[in-house]
Amino acid sequence: MTNAENVLFIAVMVIYLITMLLYFFFVIFKKTPLAKAAGGFQAAGLLIHTAALVLRGIAAGRLPMTNQYEFATCFAWGLCLVSLIFIVKFRFPVLGAFSAPVTFLIIGYAAMQSREIHELMPALQSNWLGVHVSTAVISYGSFGVSFVLSLIYLFREKAKEGGFWDTHIPAREKLDLISYRSVCLGLLFLTLTILTGAIWAERAWGSYWSWDPKETWSLVTWLIYAVYLHLRLRRNWKGKLAAIFAVAGFVCVIFTYIGVNTFLPGVHSYK
């Protein structure tokens, strides 16, 4: 890890922390300039984060997406990017108050991983790696957004009239819709991730699908979100049940990412 990258990485952590606090203050005090400032910090953090990733890519001579540290920092980057897009597109700064802590947690997880740069084993030297992992980053980021929105939805449902959640958080109908839109983005990119992964596996290992734990869990995640889409099509299933599935989907995402490498051996663990 180069010195410049290290400095940028720490700067990113600090900026994400400030972003998170600003969003909290915005939700509590309901002052729009706070939301604007938070958005500004988030965008700045994202830029610096991008620079840190580029620097690492240059130092390694490849895309910085191959080990647990690199993927974690990319994951945080993806979540930050997608949440910023959704905040701007749907004019929905409250989302920041919930996505920023998750981003901060993930970058914190990244900080705990080894940051050494290793040479790649032959199977990983493929152009498909870049496409496969970039699509996963966007997909995971989008599911992260839908996860926080669904949590807000579930809390909102329990909110007392006139209470904090009722007065500070937008209506459930809107939460549901934005959550749906982020699942759509996530599912589209997860499908791309699985497809590119399958094409790559066919070339590298001779089999496009071998029920490796990581493959299996990405399929589980895909199925859960497919169920989510169908649940939303029915009036009596829409809303709460769908939100529960969106939360479960993200738990699967996290398990696919961290749990599989930790608990289940397979080709993706590269031990």
């Binding site: 029920w211 299996t216 589980v220």
Partner: peptide, 8 residues
């Protein structure tokens, strides 16, 4: 989905 999870 549950069967796949179990199988892993």
């Amino acid at each position: 989905a549950a069967a796949c999870a179990g199988g892993s």
